[in-house]
Design a protein around this nucleic acid. Structure first.
Lengths: 413, 413
DNA sequence: TTGTTTTGAGCAAGCGTTTGCACAAACAAT
DNA sequence: ATTGTTTGTGCAAACGCTTGCTCAAAACAA
């Protein structure tokens, strides 16, 4: 005889005939050597596949009611019946409402235990209008971000923050900008999530406008291009960070400093570029256009750019690179060109991922605390979800220049 | 006058008094200079916050019915009313049922457009018992996996496969094994997902037993430790891959080959270890216990191990390392020890992540096609979800040894 | 004893869909 | 004209939960 575990699906060919279904069940029960089968509730005449409930009786003694032939789940009603209370009472026990007496709670909990009850979260979400889920749009497969550790780390932070408050994550991908927006609409209007985290802010961001218009809770990682006062965001002070990185080089005597950055549509690039320019200007160093490179992360393109840069009449003596991984590419290209770091050229990069200390030479890199970026984002999003009066916030995650061996004082020529 | 966008939440202090609510609405409407407000439906006497519907009338001409005071969404009923059909018809139009005439479809679609209707996916899931979502448990923050590109890449593959079939991803984290199982139960019994993808298989895997017992669709990435015949899984032929990698070294004249692997509880480690042993045995080379190292990925531990290994009486002339990132650590340690690769020692590693070609020297690495691992997992999971008769499958993703410069022929001593 | 408050639990409506069947209208076949 | 078929829509129950209000019983006060 079987124990009271779930019973695998019996294949019922025609769902249109009650008798046939019943018959199938009998056959199934017999061949599995269950003792008896009792249909105990016929949910409606207008029945659908999956609406029958039954009890298995073992060895003539009634055991627990077991569900499962057509994947019928244990519901709150079943628990209520077993505990001899109303469904609403069970619901309140689950919510640990103070209006229920201890005695009843015990009784109900016991029944839940016996039946192996687990609430149906879709039903819960539908009724309570909340999902305990936060939404995320992944960068599309082809995206630059995917190649480097930023994404997983920030995800890890988000996940950690969500986990602490028992929130889950819901993600989709969008291949194009249009698809991405659709994905967001699906999550938001489809009521799949209570709030959203955006992983990057573009200069003209449709998603942000959409969420703003709908007044839907969201947190942005990065700095909004506009509406700064209306958007809770968590960011580094990228302007300062880059300024400091550049100043670090300046203090080491470098005047010819090039900037290697990413897509100018990303606000972070813009900010950092400004910080770079400020540092140079403060030091009275002239800005040179040919020292500023925006390359997508593709290695080949990067190589080209670096080669061009180094073959200028006055090649730079130092580089600021906005990403460790990109810096690694640069490092390789320099190596090919026979230029050695830091003797011939100094490099400061960003992100301080694990990689940066394992590379030769270890990279001086600005640690922007990616994990915390994600962690604070989800934490603050949840606050916002749970209290709609929560004020707009701007959370700045501190950065720190980690000195390693990719920079050194400019040798006097 | 406002346009027909959503109207922000009016703060209604007491939800208990209809009149008060009505009054608040009027105040709100006046101060926002809407022309008129009509309550058009009082959903029930026994009302709850958020159950009122209304129409805004602009400039005396009736515009679209607008919802939103208490974030009331447009429902299928509203669409039905506007299009003058039954809700069921709207539902069928959405599902593009052939039973609906073209004329009606057009009419309904128009109404949906006007109202900006979007289906409530929770309600859909509840009624249709399917979520179009696949579940995933992330490695916990502290986990090894998070540090290297395996996770994001496989996620990318999964996401791609899911996206193609319009499935979304649902993720949670578990910090401990217990929490992880709870997270799975929550997703499965909470009916949040239609199927699951497991990212690694442990030797005694409670999650697998659970899913198997419940007969819940899932796909494993990696090889199951037991019940191989009952579990659809996608994997590399890790045995062969490692055997080939080792043979590659043997063919280059190496006899003293050490194995640096990860946690022995992971099936993949076991498989690869076996492949390594087979290769040696086939070549008639004696296995040495001191040549086999299992280190968690922590850099420090790894360094220790490598140092120990190299100070053996007969240090190995070649290493197989089960992960590129780990190999990078090894590379660094060797560098510290003044041992150069590949001159003094050859290395073959695994995964062939972008990193491996950017490192000095570029690593000979076995490409196991991580993306495809994820892609096939979600693709096959979805097949399984959509057709419960889908047979159990074993999908082997081909691997390929990518030769770079971290190996060379053993110089004759 | 009677009136009043408190406590605990139940009733039933509601969340927004899907879907089996009923049924009217239009058409075809007798 | 009568009886079948189609074809297209509508009806209403169901999914499994939450929650405002009602109300009986218990506890307390007068």
């Amino acid at each position: 005889m079987k124990d009271s575990a779930l019973i695998p699906l019996v294949s019922v060919q025609s769902s249109n005939h009650f008798d046939f279904l019943l018959y199938s069940l009998f056959v199934f029960v017999n061949c599995r050597r269950y003792k008896r089968l009792i249909l105990c509730e016929r949910v409606s005449h207008n029945f659908r596949l999956g609406h029958y409930r039954y009890i298995i009786v073992y060895e003539n003694s009634i055991k627990l009611p077991t569900r499962g032939v057509l994947d019928i789940a244990v519901t709150i009603k079943d628990v209520a019946k077993l505990a001899n209370v109303a469904p609403s009472t069970v619901s309140r026990v689950i919510a640990d409402s103070p209006r229920i007496s201890e005695a009843t709670k015990r009784k109900v909990n016991e029944a839940m235990g016996k039946l192996g009850y687990h609430p149906n979260l879709n039903a819960r979400s539908l009724a309570s209008q909340s999902t305990q889920t936060i939404g995320l749009v992944m960068p599309s497969s082809g995206d630059v971000v995917f190649q480097n550790p930023f994404f997983p780390t920030v995800l890890q932070g988000i996940s950690e923050g969500a986990h602490e408050k028992k929130y889950a994550l819901h993600m989709t991908t969008g291949k194009s900008e249009k698809e991405t927006l659709e994905a967001v609409v699906e999550m938001v209007q489809g009521k799949r999530v209570d709030g959203m985290i955006l992983l990057k802010s573009k200069v003209e961001d449709k998603i942000i406008s959409y969420l703003l218009k709908r007044n839907f809770p969201f947190v942005l990682i990065g700095k909004p291009y506009k509406n700064v006062e209306e958007i809770t965001h968590v960011d580094n002070d990228n302007f300062r960070a880059m300024q400091e990185a550049t100043e670090h080089l300046i203090m080491q005597g470098h005047h010819q400093i090039a900037f290697i950055g990413g897509c100018l549509e990303l606000v972070v690039t813009v900010e950092r570029l400004l910080g770079y320019e400020r540092a140079l200007r403060n030091a009275g160093i002239e800005l040179k256009n040919e020292y500023i490179i925006h390359e997508e992360f593709l290695r080949e393109g990067g190589q080209e750019a670096v080669k061009e840069l180094m073959s200028l009449e006055n090649p730079p003596t130092a580089l600021v690179v906005v990403d460790d991984f990109m810096a690694l590419g640069v490092l390789n290209t320099l190596d090919e060109l026979g230029i050695s770091v830091p003797e011939d050229i100094s490099i400061v990069s960003f992100n301080n991922v694990l990689l940066s200390e394992m590379v030769k030479p270890p990279l001086t890199s600005v640690d922007i605390n990616i994990f915390d970026l994600g962690y604070q984002a989800s934490k603050n999003l949840i606050q916002k979800i749970e209290n709609s009066n929560e004020p707009i916030k701007r959370i700045i995650i501190p950065h720190k220049l980690i000195e390693r061996s990719s920079c050194c004082h400019l040798k006097n020529k």
